[in-house]
Design a protein around this nucleic acid. Structure first.
Lengths: 316, 316
DNA sequence: TCAAAAGTGTTATCCTTACACCCATGT
DNA sequence: ACATGGGTGTAAGGATAACACTTTTGA
């Protein structure tokens, strides 16, 4: 019993990577060229596992040890590249976390704030204007333009489930679903590239496009990271050796695109015993000096697998 | 900037699938041949997406509509097959849920209880004898045989985090971690196949081995399903059109390998409004006749993405 | 002195867990 | 009548969300 006759279809295989860092309280992703592509390239054969290969490659590029690497997704749709190539191109993507280097090894790549590509995902300043003023109205008229009432209702349900007006109901994990909805509604340039949807629109929602399906890969990475940080202590891979609790909170907020409730955040970190005092105090934070803490690396052993949550209760 | 020079490494690509059903309150997985391999084969090129290809293929084989399909993992380690082949074999695996067919289309494949491969994962009858009497003692002596005290401590920590004596602390999601620990400790036949670990042992822990790394893929699938069923209503894809609440509970228990607390299970299902009455009542269940309910398909729209949990509080 | 950030105390609410119990059938 | 599975009420405990407030610095 085989999925098909035993001849292998010719395929091309490439690796691509979503490499994330947080600096100056902003989430950044490593991009190449003019910032419209993720680092990617043919598979390197020298390594036993792909993860080790990726790790070595990124560490060469960024001159940083990677704290965390995981497989993200394998993209293999036939029409990924909007070409009619005979060989299917398969893209194996990884998510990696780095402490941002002061400068990057090569001139052709650099760090870019990820909200440049997803401005609707940033709610740290309160209700997102772009969503309220542009996206929701245009999605609603897209829903209204459906062929039949049933389809219209379905579209409205999907809109209501992913985009909301209010901070309260915003679910920050639905990055990919939101991007796909905008794509289907023809509101992003990527949709116009594929003839399939018949997008005639040229007035797109703001947010920079990327080549091929790279923005989709990035959306997958952001979504994964936002989900993961709720039950695994991954933020610490993005932090310097010692930091203040506020810095930590702002890093989590940068990833989640949302403000958190200070007290509950602190209670949580404390109760889970995720950090320990360094004994040092740092001044010049704009107010009262803050204690410096460090990540208790032991928790990775103690609950290597059990799961450690990060809190995400909303702030005022 | 490319991950390597622009020549593609030659790779072989195959699909493999973990296809799960629940019948007679047992979790079953579709296997081929003598039951030591998962269905797998070269990539089928006729379809736009791999998921559609897999779906079509399985539906032909099992004569059932698949309710749910998701990508599981891409296995690409160089030494996956314990051969020194020049081409890297990449295995793209999917997890699929089916309602078990009365009989299967072909003679070479069939359904097999997954606890045949993972007897230590079944705690539905209370504390697992195999874990208590065989696995834990042997893992402990493996830990004790470590090169140095540091390594021994690390091993003990890993053992304590994954295998436990008591029902209370058993974490049913750690299927893969447990398998990997047994592998490293040389307690499963798969470990002996790779020369690397220098396993001389031939007295393995019970539980049937599979070809290549198929048991590892299966472990990944079981773990994914156990985790997923806690926040997505996936069990219903395994149930018939109408069922009793006890049947549903036994299906969840079959997947989780653990007994659940009846009232809390019911309260949860009710509170989440996951099912609705059919009005029918079925007798002959060994006691009082039970109401038949059906899955409220609407919840998939209502919270297509939001996440619907399934309870997993323990029973007495 | 006052804005800004650091840091603390307390409460209402909900969900989880668990206890104990009644109901309706087949044998 | 009684064993077996179906089905319900209610309370303790803990986590979550939200309230308001004090402390310490730099400008």
């Amino acid at each position: 019993m085989s999925i098909r006759d035993p001849s292998f279809e010719p395929v091309g295989l490439e690796l691509s990577a979503v490499i994330v860092a947080v600096t100056d309280d902003e989430p950044r992703v490593l991009v190449v060229g003019d910032g419209t592509a993720l680092p990617s390239g043919p598979l390197e054969s020298g390594h036993r596992t792909l993860e080790l290969g990726l790790r070595a490659w990124v560490e060469r590029q960024t001159r940083q040890k990677l704290g965390y690497v995981e497989q993200l997704y394998t993209f293999a749709d036939r029409d990924r590249l909007q070409t009619l190539a005979a060989t299917r191109l398969i893209s194996l993507s990884y998510l990696a976390l780095a402490r941002e280097a002061a400068e990057i090894g090569t001139a052709e790549s650099g760090w870019s704030n990820w909200y440049r590509y997803f401005p609707w995902e940033d709610w740290r300043q309160g209700p997102n204007i772009l969503v309220q003023n542009v996206i929701l109205p245009r999605l609603r008229s897209w829903a209204a333009s459906a062929r039949n009432p049933g389809q219209a209702r379905l579209r409205e349900q999907r809109i209501g489930g992913t985009f909301t007006e209010t901070e309260r109901h915003w679910n920050e994990e639905l990055v990919l679903q939101r991007f796909e909805l905008l794509y289907e509604a023809g509101l992003v340039p990527e949709a116009a590239r594929s003839g399939e949807l018949g997008v005639t629109n040229t007035d797109f929602v703001s947010g920079e496009a990327m080549v091929h399906d790279h923005r989709r890969i990035l959306a997958t990475g952001i979504a994964r990271l936002r989900a993961k940080s709720k039950y695994r202590p991954v933020v610490f891979e993005l932090m310097p050796a010692s930091f203040t609790l506020s810095q930590l909170q702002r890093a989590v907020e940068a990833l989640a695109g949302r403000r958190l409730h200070k007290q509950n955040f602190r209670r949580f970190i404390e109760q889970q015993r995720l950090v320990e005092e360094t004994g040092e105090i740092v001044a010049g934070t704009g107010g009262r000096p803050a204690r410096l803490v460090r990540f208790r690396r032991e928790v990775l052993q103690e609950r290597a697998v059990a799961g450690t949550k990060l809190p995400l209760s909303r702030s005022a």
